[in-house]
Design a protein around this nucleic acid. Structure first.
Lengths: 336, 336
DNA sequence: AAAATTAGGTTAAGCGCTTACCCTCCCCCC
DNA sequence: GGGGGGAGGGTAAGCGCTTAACCTAATTTT
């Protein structure tokens, strides 16, 4: 059996209150007893139970992270960022992969609530926002990450998706491209990225009238290939010379499909991704991508979460950070 | 304030013992009260505190996962596997990225112990095995994952690294390659992979006498490039025609370096990786790699862990699964 | 019809901490 | 020399559950 505070107290010849006080460096304890108790704790290899202290404290020191899938590099990198900041303050992270299923999300939320986590970071809000709405109503400290729910009075940290879409498009236009394709996914920010894309085109007076050049799908490499195949199968004077994919995985699918169609990138086709995950460096050619400032985002998220934990009624803030275009080798001037 | 079992009991007009029993479906409770209590719980949106129940139960329903880095795809995929099995049984996962630092590992272990996690899966044992030895001595349920410590009487689930190295090499030999290079990393299994490599060569009567063709480094893409550069800079009749890298990241580094050196893969150089992560599909050309049967490994790990949790003194088992060669497009016949 | 079960609960003692409050020396000062 | 005021610690009441032990009334057994 693990030693308890009683064991330590007995061995040290003091009361458990005293032990507790040296543990928490609270109250007045003489140097002498402090050292003695400390020594005994070492000897017994005493590990104070956080589950017991959490019961009185109302602080478990764990935070829950809800994401679609930890195996997805973007979210793995997110998790790492959050984990680092959490660890600095002595907390840790329960990761919950929801696969964007409302049912799984609900199960996990309930579990986290019962575990009395101090707070939640939600990088995967379910299709059904009611779940989150309930949490907010119950004053559960939480921050929405990477995707906001506008109508909800909650903290959030996002990247300016609209701006990102705009930037990517502007860049392609500057390279001379005029027939652009876009592949969007069903993740929450995607819609805004598409809007940015369309507005950037409109600003140049270009219409995106070919529906075959706008494809909506879910974020897998395979879907990226399929979508690309569809676009590239059009006549050479109709098909896009550049494709903006709303995430890196889709973009890499495009790369692959283009290559197997005999196109050379970026000579025959330019491709821009989104998220700037490690994958962008790994594929070939390396992928031009819109970067989310992940490290900054996770830091802000933790700051907001801490605020919310220490004062659940604190005014909510929505922080939107700027994306950044990272140019690599998948983009080039329009073929003449 | 969250409702407690007392609130439910009062509203339902029963004792807290009764509420507890309907909660745990234990004891005898009439259908009627069961339903009544259930209704009240719904009404109050009662979420029983697992921290309180853990205090009496000695079961927190959380398990700790120690890995080098959750942002590394291999470990992210591992985490996902473990998470899924954990979730099935109503547990969840605290992920701990140690960066292979003994200090971080020690901090995390202490934290997990204080949190009274039910068990640990350790996919990143620190350089110093004493830490783990201490856990084993204290009968903390744990299983070593992907890398064993032979001298330790503990559960473990690994892939046969030796066999993996052997397989990769055998395959390259079968393709006609005779000058092979190997890039190993400092992860625990690597040594065995190298041994497999060497033995396979020896079996064919081939000596690996050129030290420039055996490079040891740590697992990053950049290091893969550097190592490859070193090997490929040798005269054409000395440098290897095939390189076995002890993990995918290194292998992809090789791919990149080879390409920028003007070599075509697999025509001029064959490359085999290890782990068969998602990256193997993403790079170009796609990477031939030795697959660890991850899903099976995580399942076995959870089975062993559960065993160990329900009976910490149960006899320990070491499970070694077979790796599998996955052939893709980075390997081909030796250039004549 | 008396005795023995059983169904359906209740009581109360923990689990391992934290913390408000109280108690006792001991020192210092007038 | 009596009183005041820290310094150093102890007491005990929770925190929100679980569970062994016990109780009562209804049902069954003989």
């Amino acid at each position: 059996m693990k030693p308890t505070i009683y064991d330590v107290a007995r061995e040290a010849g003091v009361s458990i209150a005293t032990v507790s006080k040296v543990l928490n460096k609270s109250g007045r304890i003489s140097i002498k007893t402090r050292e003695k108790v400390g020594r005994i704790m070492e000897e017994l290899n005493y590990q104070p139970s956080m589950v017991a202290s959490a019961l009185t404290n109302r602080r478990t020191g764990t935070i829950g992270l809800m994401i679609p899938d930890i195996a997805n590099p973007f979210f793995a990198e997110t998790a790492r960022g959050i984990e680092d900041y959490a660890q600095e303050q002595g907390s840790d992270l329960i990761v919950c992969s929801t696969d964007r299923s409302d049912e799984k999300a609900a199960r996990y939320i309930s579990l986290l609530l019962r575990k009395r986590v101090d707070g939640l970071i939600i990088a995967s809000h379910p299709g059904n926002p009611e779940l989150i709405r309930g949490l907010v109503a119950d004053h559960v400290p939480l921050v929405l990450f990477s995707a906001d729910i506008r109508s909800l009075e909650s903290h959030s940290v996002t990247v300016d998706d609209y701006k990102g879409g705009y930037q990517a498009t502007e860049y392609l236009l500057a390279l001379g491209h005029r027939r652009l394709g876009i592949i969007s996914d069903n993740l929450p920010g995607s819609k805004l990225r598409v809007e940015g894309f369309l507005d950037a085109l409109k600003a140049e007076g270009i219409a995106c009238d070919n529906p075959a050049n706008m494809i909506h799908t879910s974020a897998t490499l395979e879907n990226g290939r399929t979508a690309a195949a569809e676009m590239l199968n059009q006549a050479a004077d109709i098909r896009p010379t550049a494709i903006f994919a709303c995430n890196d995985l889709l973009a890499i699918g495009v790369l692959k499909e283009a290559r197997s169609a005999g196109l050379s990138i970026p000579r025959d086709l330019s491709v821009v991704g989104f998220d700037n995950t490690v994958l962008a460096e790994i594929c070939h050619p390396t992928l031009t991508s819109i970067a989310q400032p992940l490290r900054e985002m996770t830091e802000q998220a933790m700051i907001l979460l801490n605020e919310s934990i220490s004062n659940p009624a604190s005014p909510k803030r929505k922080i939107m950070l700027m994306p950044e275009l990272v140019i690599r080798h998948s983009t080039g001037p329009v073929p003449r």
